[in-house]
Nucleic acid binder design. Structure first.
Lengths: 244, 244
DNA sequence: CGAATCGTTGATTCAACTCAACGCGAGTGG
DNA sequence: CCACTCGCGTTGAGTTGAATCAACGATTCG
């Protein structure tokens, strides 16, 4: 069981999406909440599994991916602290993709069945979670456009911009500096490129003085420049100051 | 106002996603419903618009797309009869993409605000629509993988398989023959390829006796063969016989 | 009949992939 | 404490799948 601080954190995270009514808050508090931890590269869920729980990412990074027939892998989402990892499975009984930890990770789990029941019974909760799943779909659309229609340089820059802004919006840190705990192989799998080409692309962004790198963290040295080569606008993230 | 037959159709479509309770059904019937038609290439909604209505596709084809900075376009979804075109905007005030008619199209419109209110008040309705938005997100994930990790041949075949199965699942027709009312330019924009390359790829699929084409319709002459080169499995469509 | 749109085809170019080697730092075990 | 390994990043050389450029048919429509 998770303690009161975790509960409070969860409540804040959900309320960040849409305000919770009193009874929604109460119902949420009545749900049992379990903390779970995962090692890097450990699976939270596999394609074909029928998840019993939904998880909120308390700390660390996780990613979701699909394997295609020729052995390739496509990463379809990257989650950071505060993300609801499992929205996409909440009403679909069988998972269509894998969820894996990128770093040491802590998640808060709620029974899927209970969460569905409580959400459907409490409109403010349903609104928050439903909205979250729509937001994720919006991000996915942008990824399709990114992978389908931007070249490697722009595409890579775009992902960096997105992660920077999402981190900022989640209150984890400023857009100018963030951890990116992924190998270049994984970055390639997220962007539909090869590790070798990711390497060249990152070096080119660095050479253009747009970013600096050290180990697995990135500093944005020229935000506007990066945004420009990325063709990035944050509309699709539906941030609260713009859209509510 | 739409007539009783349209209402009944709509009810069937929603119930196809998840069973509707009696009071959900009643509440749905109380909503005012408007029929609207669109010409080919007419916009249903533009990026940046704040939609007032949600639309269900009564007949015809529509597609949704994003424009990227270099002038490129990426089609992120294709909808056929029975699809809920606007789920993705139901809880996000500003649209992050364009929705456009592919053919002559008829849609049934419901006030967005009303639909949200009624859904949140009636769990069975919320479940059906929420599930639909998750299903769309699942399709989007597969598109990311398709565009990111499959070559032109496999990628194109995959989209054909998807459309065939979706048409079959929607009860519009068999998987072996379907309309594909898109130019090769549009197909390219959906698959992250150029029109010229789409042309060559389609001809190659035809030369391999997997499909036959005439005008804007496709016949699948070798379903298993097509499915094999497409690396297609229908799991991500979460069809009712497999997953409910 | 002319104009426009879309499909088809060939020739050429290029962005990203493949293959291969090497460097480097973090463990690990003798 | 050093030698060894292993995973990851880096770099170069050569290849290729898809893009680009350009022209020409076919079909539709006013």
């Amino acid at each position: 069981m998770a303690d009161a601080a975790e509960r409070e954190w969860l409540e804040r995270q959900i309320a960040r999406r849409a305000p919770l009514s009193n009874d929604g808050q109460m119902a949420l508090r009545a749900l049992s909440l379990v903390t779970r931890t995962y090692e890097p590269s450990q699976y939270l869920l596999r394609e074909g599994d029928r998840p019993k729980h939904c998880s909120f990412l308390r700390s660390g990074f996780v990613y979701r991916h699909k394997i295609v027939g020729n052995g390739g892998r496509q990463i379809v989402a990257i989650h950071l602290e505060g993300d609801f990892v499992d929205v996409q499975n909440i009403l679909l009984t069988e998972s269509d993709h894998n969820i894996q930890a990128l770093t040491m990770t802590k998640v808060l789990c709620i029974s899927r069945e209970d969460l569905v029941a409580v959400s459907l019974a409490h409109p403010s909760l349903a609104r928050a979670l439903w909205r979250e799943s729509l937001l994720e779909a919006s991000i996915m659309r942008e990824w399709v456009a990114n992978v389908g229609r931007r070249d490697a340089r722009s595409r890579t820059a775009h992902m960096l911009c997105e992660l920077a802004i999402r981190q900022e919006a989640a209150g984890i840190g400023p857009r100018e500096a963030f951890d990116l705990p992924m190998t270049q192989e994984q970055l390639g799998d997220a962007l539909g490129l090869t590790a070798v080409h990711i390497n060249r692309t990152l070096k080119s962004l660095e050479a253009a003085a747009l970013i600096a790198r050290s180990k697995r963290s990135v500093t944005v040295t020229d935000w506007h420049g990066l945004q420009r080569v990325a063709d990035f606008t944050s509309g699709y993230l539906h941030l609260p100051d713009v859209d509510h």
